[in-house]
Amino acid sequence: MSDPRAAVIVFPGSNGDRDLLEALRAAGFDSFPHPSGQPLPDDVALAGLPGGFSYGDYWRAGMLASQEPAVRSLSSLIDRGGLVIGVCNGFQILVEAGLLPGALSYNDPAGFRHRWVTVRCALETDSPWFRNVPNGATLRLPIAHGEGSYFHPGGFDAVASHAPLLYEENPNGSMGALAALLDDTGRVLGIMPHPERASDPDLGSEDGLSLFTGAFGAVARHPSPVAGKNEVAAGAHTS
């Protein structure tokens, strides 16, 4: 059987697409770049929204990108049981698209910040992204953003049950030190740090790869979102 396909949506101004393609490939996916101006093909098991400055961040970060056809087609992928990850700018796009709740605003203290940080898994979850990251585990990942301060009008309590990763030291003023967020299905992950840049021991850490191998394990165990999308639509591998 061929490897499950993973589309990395390339927006004008994306700059982490190649890194995300590499990490997904390292985890076993047949990853390929997909232009944001077209809806996703039906045969993908996973979609990745990479980091970068889509549309230059010239409006609110991620806002313009969230209107793109590829993003509008994500809900049908999710309905089919597919997986979605948005990293950094990709997280901002998922929030702007309404696929994850809340908002990401300017860092506090203000300014773009690159730093290696430690995040802790703080959730018992069936999310496929966390098959290989048990509750309590820590990951060392880089952050590189200026608008990563997570806000929810209901406060952190409103999203605590969907917040799988928390910063050990809050670098950006996020509510509850939230570093990542899952949707209700557990299949859509927004994450501000960069796991795709921590997927090669030569580059300082391979902790991030465990998220992608977890996703691969889930998809490989249920190799259906593509071939048998009806089966998936029937809920074959929802948690």
Binding site: N15, F112, A144, H194, D200
Partner: peptide, 26 residues
């Protein structure tokens, strides 16, 4: 100062600012 700059995008940086006497990439 170097925190103002993305040091790791592109997945090449083996040694970035402050992590070696010279920058190293693979």
């Amino acid at each position: 100062l170097y925190e103002r700059y993305d040091q790791t995008v592109g997945n090449r940086t083996v040694r970035g600012p402050g992590r070696g006497e010279a920058a190293v990439q693979k």
